[in-house]
Simulated assay, not measured.
Amino acid sequence: MARMSAEDRRESVVRAAVSEFARSGYHGTSTETIAKRVGVSQPYLFRLFTGKQAIFLAASERCLADAREVFLRAAEGLEGEEASLALGAAYRQLIVDDPDTLLMQMQMYAAVAAAEAAGDHAFGERLRLGWEGLWDEVHVLLGADQDETTSFWAYGMLINTLASMGFPAGHRVWSGFDLTAGACSAD
Rank of each mutant, 00 (worst) to 15 (best):
S24M: 03
L142R: 04
A67Q: 14
E7A: 14
P168M: 07
Q146F: 09
F71H: 08
R15N: 07
V173D: 04
L87R: 12
F21I: 15
D147Q: 15
L162K: 10
L134Q: 14
S41Y: 06
R37N: 05
G124H: 02
A17L: 02
N160S: 07
Q53L: 08
D145I: 08
D100E: 15
L102R: 02
A83Q: 11
G25L: 07
L48N: 09
E137K: 06
F46S: 07
E61K: 10
D97Y: 04
H171L: 12
G39S: 10
W153G: 04
V112K: 01
G25F: 05
T29H: 07
V14F: 00
R128P: 00
S41F: 02
D147I: 13
M106C: 08
L141P: 01
S5V: 07
D120E: 11
A17W: 01
R128E: 14
A110C: 05
E61P: 01
F49I: 10
G39M: 08
L142A: 08
Q42A: 12
Q93F: 00
A83V: 04
L78V: 05
G51W: 04
A83N: 06
F46R: 12
L45H: 06
M157H: 13
D187I: 09
I34P: 05
T31H: 03
V38D: 02
R47V: 13
W135P: 00
A154R: 11
D136E: 11
T29L: 04
G143P: 08
G170S: 14
A169L: 12
F167L: 14
L134G: 11
L162E: 06
D178P: 02
E81Q: 12
T150L: 09
T161V: 10
A113R: 12
A122V: 14
Q107W: 01
W153A: 02
A54G: 15
G124P: 10
T101V: 15
F167T: 12
R23T: 08
L102W: 03
A74T: 04
V173W: 04
T29E: 06
T101P: 00
L87F: 06
T180Q: 09
A114S: 12
M108L: 11
V18D: 04
I95N: 03
C63K: 03
E116M: 09
F177K: 10
Q53D: 15
A89R: 13
E81G: 01
Q105W: 06
E32A: 15
A83M: 05
R47N: 14
A117V: 05
N160W: 08
G182R: 05
L64D: 08
P168I: 08
G25R: 09
R62W: 13
D178Q: 06
R128C: 02
L102E: 03
G170F: 02
L64V: 13
Q105F: 05
F177R: 10
T33F: 00
E61S: 12
F71V: 01
